[in-house]
């Protein structure tokens, strides 16, 4: 006798109906979750762009802030401060990140390489405010004053893992034959790396650097007690003054990096909470600039990468 079929116990039609309904409902719900994520994105973006765009004017970029409670003024100090600190951060972080990435490329599976990857991931996970505390403890405390230099260093620590991770990815994409070919011709290792591998991976590395810069420009927390903020930070002024007193180039640079400085997000944070309408408006305008910068850099980097990838892999 044939064993009893399982379908003696199953009401197929009812079973199918139940499962189909569940299927439709749950799949639709995942669509809803996407909509729920897109909603705040659109809300924030549109609101900030509209509201900030309203307060956007030329003065924002060429003037220092007006005294509290008076209209007008700009955030030149913050723009210059951001520029100086991000520049310093890039100068510190990018070479270290690239060199470490070259190390990972040359010795991918050693214990040191594993430790570096782990360390990079952990570095990326440290809350930026804690990195700020570190900058305070190591630089501000020893120098006994807040400075753009300290701000640049902590931003470099924030940038480092971002650039390092993407640089490693990009260097790995370069066919190893290229490097080995150069070595086989008798080229020293560094020449093979800098003249052959680096150019081949350049575009990808640039996008990684762009992402790192986008991250650094938007960071506030680590600057709170390293760069501190400075409403009067103006490089032109520092240079003019320096020239007037016949200071050397080094002394002027020392002034630029040695003073406390402001940054766009730092200014935004401070102005957002002030009771003066003018300051809050400046904050919205700064938000507009920051948002455009961060999103623009991100979109450009990713679009470029996607475009290259399509070109490479058909």
């Amino acid at each position: 006798m044939a064993p009893e079929s399982i379908y003696a116990h199953v009401n197929l039609r009812r079973n199918y109906r139940r499962r189909k309904i569940l299927n439709t409902v749950m799949l639709s719900l995942t669509g809803v979750t996407v909509a729920l994520a897109v909603l705040p994105l659109v809300w924030i973006t549109v609101y900030v762009l509209l509201k900030g765009g309203r307060y956007l004017n030329l003065a924002l970029f060429i003037h220092l802030p007006a005294p509290m409670g008076t209209p007008g003024g700009g955030v030149l100090h913050a723009i210059e401060g951001s520029l100086v600190m991000v520049l310093l951060a890039s100068l510190l972080a990018i070479p270290v990140a690239l060199l470490a990435a070259f190390y990972l490329l040359a010795r991918p599976n050693t214990a040191v390489a594993q430790a570096v990857r782990f360390s990079t991931d952990m570095l990326a996970g440290i809350p930026s405010i804690v990195v700020g505390l570190f900058g305070y403890a190591v630089i501000v405390v020893t120098q006994k004053h807040y400075s753009a230099f300290a701000g640049g260093v902590v931003l470099a620590i924030i940038m480092l893992p971002v650039v390092l991770r993407s640089a490693e990815e990009m260097l790995k994409l370069v066919p190893p034959e290229m490097r080995e070919g150069a070595l086989a011709l008798g080229a020293p290792e560094w020449r093979a790396a800098l003249r052959v591998v680096l150019p081949a991976a350049m575009e990808g590395i640039v996008t990684g650097v762009m992402l790192g810069i986008a991250r650094a420009v938007g960071e506030t927390a680590p600057l709170l007690f390293t760069a501190l903020g400075n409403d009067h930070y103006e490089i032109g002024q520092i240079v003019r003054q320096g020239l007037h007193y016949h200071q050397s180039m080094g002394q002027i640079l020392g002034q630029i990096f040695g003073q406390p400085a402001d940054a766009l997000p730092l200014t935004l944070w401070k102005y957002a909470q002030q009771p003066y309408q003018e300051r809050v408006q400046l904050a919205w305008a700064v938000a507009f600039v920051l948002m455009l910068f961060a999103l623009g850099l991100n979109i450009a980097a990713r679009a470029w990468l996607a475009y290259r990838r399509r070109k490479l892999y058909g």
Partner: peptide
């Protein structure tokens, strides 16, 4: 596959 069809009874599952 049996559970997809809504069969929950242990005895039937065991047997099949």
């Amino acid at each position: 596959g049996l559970r997809l069809l809504g069969i929950r009874q242990k005895s039937i599952l065991d047997e099949v």
